[in-house]
């Protein structure tokens, strides 16, 4: 028996991982040099959440999938051109600042308010998805804060798998220390799941999905509400690139045997 789910995925945008990053501090606080110029991608862990959500929605007919994303409208639009080809969703864009330096509590407040106001959302059927950490702030707190604001007290972080059962309960695998998973069974929705990589490959680009999505994405982007995020008393004392440069000894003239001997000595008696 299929369960009707209302899945809301919170996913931000982050600089494409190979970009050269350099922090700068402006009047509005710290940021990245040329951040608006760098190509952006959907936050990788949140992207896993989105793919898992799509798979779950597909398996449970009648389910709905929203993607709530906070970022500068122009950048969101750019990233959605790639994401929208992969799976069908309803975009809920929030036109706000870019980057990892704004306060997570403010971000969470805006997200929670937006989600609570989603037309047609039944909180009893809600699965709130997102990445367990972002690739920008990397704090792993926003989703919990949104969950708390929505009054959801079944929360899971570092999730790699969800198995939904016919009775609406589900088993969740969360990453814990030592490369293991903690296994839990939750009685049912609502719940918060912060995803790690999951088990699904990135879906292929499907132009028809893209076409269908775009009919709703462009109007949604045009209506996106401009938002500012309060600093909430968060102050940055310094923001800098790590300076550590090691003095590297490059060993070119040893035989594999000699190198092996040196390494064994280095590894020591462990």
């Amino acid at each position: 028996m299929a369960n009707v789910l209302h899945i809301v995925v919170c996913a931000g945008i982050v600089p494409d991982p190979l970009q050269t990053l350099e922090p700068v501090t402006g009047p509005a606080g710290p940021g990245l040099k040329n951040e608006m110029v760098l190509p952006a991608v959907l936050d990788p862990w949140a992207a896993s959440a989105l793919y898992e959500a799509a798979a779950l929605a597909a398996k449970n007919p009648g389910s709905k999938l929203w993607l709530v994303s906070l970022g500068p409208k122009a950048k969101l639009q750019q990233v959605m051109m790639t994401v929208a080809q992969k799976i069908a969703f309803e975009l809920v864009p929030i036109d706000g600042p870019i980057g990892g330096f704004p306060d997570a509590h403010s971000t969470a407040a805006v997200l929670a308010e937006t989600i609570a106001a989603l037309p047609g959302l039944d909180k009893a059927k809600l699965l709130l998805f997102g990445g367990w950490e972002s690739a920008t702030r990397g704090a792993g707190v926003t989703l919990q804060l949104v969950g708390e604001r929505l009054g959801i007290i079944d929360q899971f972080q570092g999730v790699d798998q969800i198995d939904l059962r016919d009775d609406g309960s589900f088993e969740v695998l969360e990453r814990v220390e030592g490369g293991k998973h903690q296994v839990s069974v939750c009685a049912g929705t609502p719940a918060v799941l912060g995803w790690a990589t999951g088990n699904l490959a990135e879906p292929r680009n499907n132009p028809q999905t893209g076409m269908a999505n775009m009919r709703t994405i462009m109007p949604a982007l045009q209506k996106a509400k401009p938002t500012t995020l309060a600093p909430n008393g968060l102050r940055y004392v310094s923001v800098a690139l790590p300076k550590q440069q090691r003095t590297t000894r490059v060993v070119k003239d040893l035989t594999p045997d000699e190198i092996a001997a040196e390494l064994v000595e280095w590894i020591g008696a462990e």
Partner: peptide, 23 residues
């Protein structure tokens, strides 16, 4: 790169045409 992005953003904002990268 920047010029394309500038032009592409304006085009997409019209909502009249769709440009699909990665395809």
């Amino acid at each position: 790169g920047q010029f394309n992005q500038w032009v592409g953003s304006q085009l997409m904002a019209t909502g009249l045409v769709q440009i699909w990268p990665g395809t």
